[in-house]
């Protein structure tokens, strides 16, 4: 671990400093949005959104390399695909009552498959693994600007509409009866989730997104009594896991995304088991 801190202090290792800054800043967005995803029980929707992101990345690479549309870079493709799929998935979950999970499962798989097909038709070799499992060490200055903007947006929106989001998550019907446009706020929440997912894909990749979005809030849920407390604890836990995971992955030469996920997954399961034991013991 000591060599990790030495490496961090070394000005040549700019990428490590970026990675640590990215981890900390991204945790603000993850903790807040992750809390909503967990309490509204829409992690399945978040999964569908994250896999459709791959379709957007594939499309962008195809347009860029094959069609020569140079401004259409993968980040733009990812953001576009995430927002469109958030709206589609949201409308499906509101209107298609019985078939909801089937339709969302289909969108999930089709989004992913489209991405692969686009990449098949794009000349050149692309390392899929950094999209699938993330690579926080490839973070650039531009990504940092992007995450700061997203943090400002999310914190601002949540402070302004906290009570409305609370209502939509806890009791949608009652909130609607109080004159609030619940459909709008639900879709708004999904769009924010989509933007956060795009950011997460850079760090832990498409496949592992759900874990980093839901595990810190799940742990926070053990100890928080109020919604804002759950958000705060989630942000702190998320930063802690990302930083510790980065340190471990650097020291042991492991992939950063999976290291972070295994770390927070293990902590969650241990705490869950411990809580169960204490609970049954007290009974």
């Amino acid at each position: 671990m000591i060599e990790f801190f030495q490496a961090l202090a070394d000005p040549d290792n700019r990428f490590l400093t970026y990675a640590m800054a990215m981890g900390g800043l991204a945790s603000i967005a993850f903790g807040i949005i992750g809390t909503f995803v967990t309490i509204k029980r829409i992690s399945y929707l978040a999964g569908a959104i994250s896999h459709s992101v791959f379709g957007g990345i594939g499309l962008a690479l195809y347009l860029q390399v094959k069609m020569g549309i140079s401004w259409f870079d993968p980040i733009l493709g990812a953001v576009l695909a995430a927002v469109v799929s958030a709206l589609v998935v949201g409308l499906v979950s509101i209107h298609a009552k019985e078939r909801e999970d089937t339709i969302i499962g289909t969108l999930w798989a089709v989004g992913m498959a489209c991405g692969i097909l686009f990449i098949d038709k794009t000349p050149g070799y692309f390392s899929l693994s950094s999209y699938l499992f993330g690579d926080i060490l490839l973070i650039s200055h531009r990504d940092l600007v992007f995450v700061i903007c997203l943090d400002v947006l999310i914190v601002g929106v949540v402070v302004l509409f906290f009570n409305r989001f609370f209502g939509v998550c806890f009791d949608n019907e009652f909130t609607l009866l109080r004159g609030i446009n619940t459909t709008f706020f639900y879709l708004f929440l999904l769009v924010l989730t989509a933007l956060t997912v795009v950011l997460l894909v850079r760090i832990v990749g498409i496949v592992l997104v759900i874990a980093l979005l839901t595990i810190p809030p799940a742990i926070a849920g053990f100890y928080a009594r109020r919604l804002w407390q759950m958000m705060l604890y989630s942000v702190l836990l998320c930063a802690l896991f990302t930083w510790t995971g980065l340190g471990i992955s650097y020291s042991l030469a492991l992939s950063s995304g999976p290291t972070i996920i295994v770390l927070c997954g293990t902590v969650y399961l241990v705490l869950l088991a411990a809580n169960k034991l204490v609970f049954t013991h007290n009974k």
Binding site: I39, N163, F166, G167, C169, F170, D171, F174, T175, R178, G221, A224, R225, R226, L227, Q229, M230
Partner: peptide, 13 residues
């Protein structure tokens, strides 16, 4: 399991 106090819930009204 929703994290809310009695006051939080009542304030929804």
């Amino acid at each position: 399991n929703f994290p809310a106090t009695v006051l939080d819930v009542v304030l929804m009204g």
